[in-house]
């Protein structure tokens, strides 16, 4: 089966041909299958955001190709535009793109650009608002009267309403309080389950990707350096630390316990940790 999205040997240089030229991506290849949740991690400036902007045709690769459903997204102009709708990209701090008079109109901006009829737009707006927990009263309010977290969720709904096959979120939880972060992550999960959607999420939170992602992509200095399940990626903490990254907090605690002589399995999420500790406790009692 053709993967939903395939990136082949992608390279991109900013300000090519000037003294300010700098390579943002070099020879990046990976694939995204339908229904996956992919976490993208990497140090600031490793090229994550640049990579994401290539996936819906906002940036054109200098070398290499991006295939959506087996077709090069730059093969013709119409298809490039279509890709913007099929691959929904939520930028960092998306609340700064809100502009309409009401939240409803702002969420409807994307679907309207798709040329859908009024009834379908209405259905999509209400559904998207439902996923992110925006009430009917808030739909009619000005987006500028919402709180920070609500604004962020309204902006995400604007992309979700386009019903993209692949939803990409660039640090969706940056700058939010813990509760706001949890809400956004819950919204994404709800949406994903309901629509069986494919999601890519750029983040700095190892805890979040360990819990949510099926597969991780690790970027470092313009290269894709590691790819694999969270178990595989987090099994080598030292190389992650060398790249300016880290392992989830529970993994770190367990590694420290291991150093003190406790025999423990490797864990990546809180649930796994609870189970492992319960097993240890139970085992100790029986011994």
């Amino acid at each position: 089966m053709t993967p939903l999205l395939e990136v082949q040997n992608l390279s991109h240089t900013y300000s090519a041909g000037t003294p300010f030229a700098h390579k943002a991506l070099e020879d990046v290849s990976f694939r995204v299958d339908r229904g996956e949740f992919i976490g993208v991690i990497g140090h600031t400036g490793s090229g994550k955001s640049t990579l994401m902007q290539h996936l819906n045709g906002l940036l054109k690769p200098d070398q290499g190709r991006v295939l959506l459903d087996g077709k090069d997204i730059w093969s013709d102009k119409k298809f490039t535009r279509e890709c913007r709708f099929r691959v929904g990209l939520v930028f960092q701090y998306p609340e700064y793109q809100l502009f309409e008079e009401t939240v409803y109109a702002d969420i409807a901006f994307g679907p309207k650009n798709m040329g859908l009829d009024g009834k379908e737009i209405d259905r999509r707006v209400r559904e998207a608002a439902g996923f992110v927990g925006i009430t009917d009263a808030q739909l009619n309010a000005s987006p500028f009267d919402l709180s920070g977290g609500q604004k962020r969720r309204a902006a995400i709904a604007g992309i979700v309403a386009m019903e993209p096959e692949l939803l990409i979120l660039d640090e969706p939880t940056a700058g939010l309080d813990p509760r706001g972060r949890e809400e956004i992550l819950d919204n994404i999960q709800t949406y994903r389950r309901a629509k069986n959607a494919t999601v890519m999420m750029v983040t700095h939170s190892m805890n979040d990707v360990a819990r949510l992602a099926d597969r991780l992509i690790v970027m470092s200095q313009s290269h894709l350096v590691l790819e694999g399940t969270p178990e595989e990626i987090f099994s080598d903490p030292q190389s992650l630390v060398d790249m300016g990254l880290d392992v989830p907090e529970v993994t770190r605690v367990f590694l420290a316990l291991e150093k003190r002589g406790l025999r423990l399995p490797r864990v990546y999420t809180l649930d796994q940790a609870v189970a492992a500790l319960a097993a240890l406790k139970g085992g100790a009692r029986h011994a």
């Binding site: 913007r84 901006f109 650009n113």
Partner: peptide, 13 residues
Amino acid sequence: DKIMSAQKARGAD
């Protein structure tokens, strides 16, 4: 530049 990209991602032309 950033806002333009974000609106383009929503299909603005």
